[in-house]
Amino acid sequence: MTAGSRYALIQLVRYSLITVAFLAIANELGGSWSQVQWLVAALSVGLGFGLQEIFANMVSGIILLFERPIRVGDTVTVGDVTGRVSRIQMRATHIVDWDRKELVVPNKTFITDRLINWTLSDTVTRVVVPVSVAYGTSVEMVEKILADAVKSIEQVLSDPEPLVIFIGFGDSALQFKINVFVRELSDRTVVTHRLHTKIYEALLAHHIEIPYPQRDVHIRSVAKGILNE
């Protein structure tokens, strides 16, 4: 079994044992359902209003363990939080972000909000790198330079195939986009860094300009008009 499966099984068994133990203790104390049913009903109504968020998170925690949209060890994004799932508890899930901070996220958030699980069924992800060059540059040459840069990086997968796309005409530059795929999330930063380095060095070697934004400013002669008056 995977680590996530073991964790889910252990948590479900723990909840079941707690329930069985509670019922056994109540039975040993001599209580019967007919005697306490009204008390249980009253307590349920009171708790339902006062602790509805806690109950919602507890039910959501059980749903997470059964449906398993996230597992211990998965990398997830919820809202603006991205990190690795370290624990799934009854009320909340613990996520360790890239700064090694542990964030406690209520389980209800994973059920009601939009969730991105980067490693649920496949760890392959796409890396997109935009590149701009000056007008007048040979499109064919730029495509070859970018393709060679992609081929020189070992972490880039050959399937799906990398793509170099001429996407359009910007205000100050010809715009290209590189689409590559990597096997692990940890490769994304490495591949992005190496692509930027290789592309920059290749463009410099071929004397291809990376343009700055350009603006045309028209100045009208106001002083001359004032002097004429």
Rank of each mutant, 00 (worst) to 15 (best):
A134F: 03
R84C: 04
G31N: 09
E229F: 06
R68Q: 15
L146I: 07
F166S: 07
I199N: 09
T93S: 14
T77K: 15
A149E: 00
T112P: 00
I208A: 06
V124K: 15
A24P: 00
P211V: 05
E140F: 00
M90H: 00
E209Q: 08
L163Q: 15
P106E: 04
I153A: 08
L204H: 01
K151E: 14
I25M: 08
S152K: 10
L203P: 02
T75M: 12
K108H: 05
N27V: 10
T93V: 08
K108I: 14
L23S: 12
I111R: 02
V150I: 15
K101I: 08
S44R: 00
N117R: 07
S16K: 09
N27C: 06
V20Y: 04
R220P: 02
I63N: 09
W33Q: 02
R6D: 12
S132N: 11
V76K: 01
L23H: 11
I210S: 12
V128W: 01
I95P: 03
G79Y: 03
R188N: 02
G30Q: 06
E161G: 01
A205T: 00
L163N: 07
G73W: 10
D187N: 10
M90Q: 10
R215A: 13
N179T: 02
F55Y: 15
F66V: 15
N228L: 12
I145P: 04
T19G: 08
M58L: 12
R91T: 12
R100C: 01
E184T: 04
A147Q: 11
L64I: 10
V104R: 15
H193E: 13
L185F: 13
V13A: 13
V85R: 03
R6F: 11
F55R: 05
Y200L: 11
A3K: 11
H196E: 09
A56C: 03
L157T: 02
V96W: 00
I145R: 06
S32L: 01
E28W: 03
M58I: 11
V150P: 05
L195W: 05
V156A: 07
L64P: 05
G83Y: 10
V45I: 14
F166D: 02
I116Q: 04
L227S: 05
K144A: 13
N117W: 09
N117H: 10
Q155D: 10
S121Q: 05
H193Q: 14
E28V: 11
R100A: 12
G73N: 08
G61W: 06
D216Q: 05
N57I: 06
G61V: 07
S221V: 07
M90T: 14
P213F: 05
V191R: 03
S86G: 03
